[in-house]
């Protein structure tokens, strides 16, 4: 079993400093839609310039390098204990190299650990054993401003007239985006999970954010829902940074989970425009990186 610490460090560097091309493309298209001379257009100009500078200088796109969320799919024979140690070492090194900001704060004492390492939940690491010989690590850097505007609804929701169906899902998601205004660094990406329990639902909504913006949901009903929510959230007019404008949301990714008869949760994970994700693929001794996490 080889040591992947340096490869994971490179995964972190790429994720923090190099925005995936599909996100950059969506931001470029959003810029074209905004009126020349508007604050919205100015914001997108600055954002796109920043993306270029960050890539060139290998410096963080955003200073809030977020909660690092790793999803590790490993073939039989790998030690998750060793992989966890390697991920944690790579996180500490990345922090020292200023690819990451020290973000792990003890909630009781208020002390920042200084190296981005907290208890077992910081960084967040999920392990899943898979068939075959390929190990993949997906990394999402989820910033705090956008995390604070995530929302979870329990349906039915009387105030919003939301029942236990896709129309109900549509209504609560529109509400969540309205409530977020520009606070989550619009234009954002929405990960939506329908069902599950409160914990699994939120986690699935975060994993949905790993999907490339230009993919199409294989489930027809969810694909239609995603397209409709994308269109309608952009009719809200909140715009980049909440300055008002035509683009509030860049992409919508939804999934369904089994639920209890008694529960119907809808979780909305809001990701800022700096949708920082990357995949690392280790096949034998060869390691490569991908901007896309679709199979």
């Amino acid at each position: 079993m080889r040591d992947l610490t340096n490869d994971i460090l490179e995964l972190i560097r790429r994720t923090s400093t190099d925005l995936p091309p599909d996100v950059e493309q969506a931001l470029g298209a959003a810029r074209q839609r905004e009126t020349q001379g508007s604050a919205a257009r100015g914001a997108l100009d600055t954002i796109l310039e920043n993306v270029t500078l960050a890539r060139r200088d290998s410096s963080p796109i955003c200073q809030d390098t977020g909660t690092p969320i790793f999803i590790v799919r490993y073939p039989a024979g790998w030690s998750t204990r060793a992989l966890r140690a390697q991920i944690r070492e790579a996180i500490a090194q990345a922090t020292k190299k200023a690819y990451l900001r020290p973000n792990a704060v003890d909630s009781l004492s208020g002390k920042n650990s200084g190296n981005n390492l907290g208890d077992d939940t910081f960084p967040t690491i999920h392990f899943e054993e898979v068939e075959g010989k390929t190990l993949t690590i997906d990394l999402l850097l989820k910033g705090g401003g956008s995390e604070n505007v995530c929302a979870q609804y329990s349906l039915p929701h009387t105030g919003l007239g939301a029942g236990r169906d896709l129309e109900g899902v549509r209504r609560v998601v529109l509400d969540a985006v309205h409530q977020a205004q520009g606070q989550g660094c619009a234009p954002g990406v929405l990960g939506i999970a329908i069902g599950g329990d409160r914990g699994s639902s939120y986690m699935a909504s975060k994993e949905a954010l790993l999907r490339p913006l230009d993919d199409v949901n294989p489930d027809r009903a969810l694909a239609d829902l995603e397209a409709r929510i994308l269109r309608e959230t952009n009719e809200l007019g909140i715009g980049p940074m909440g300055f008002g404008g035509k683009t509030t949301v860049l992409g919508v990714k939804a999934c369904g989970l089994h639920r209890l008869p008694a529960s119907f949760f809808v979780s909305v994970s809001y990701m800022c425009w700096a949708c920082r994700r990357r995949r690392m693929i280790a096949d034998g001794d060869a390691v490569r990186y991908s901007d896309r996490s679709d199979p």
């Binding site: 600055t46 954002i47 920043n50 796109i61 200073q63 809030d64 200084g114 401003g145 700096a274």
Partner: peptide, 28 residues
Amino acid sequence: HAIGGAATLIAQTVTRVVGVHKLDFGVP
């Protein structure tokens, strides 16, 4: 209102770090 997320660009407008107070609060 500064542009959220435009962190590298804004950092390049910082010509000098004069000093820091209460670093015991942590870097951020």
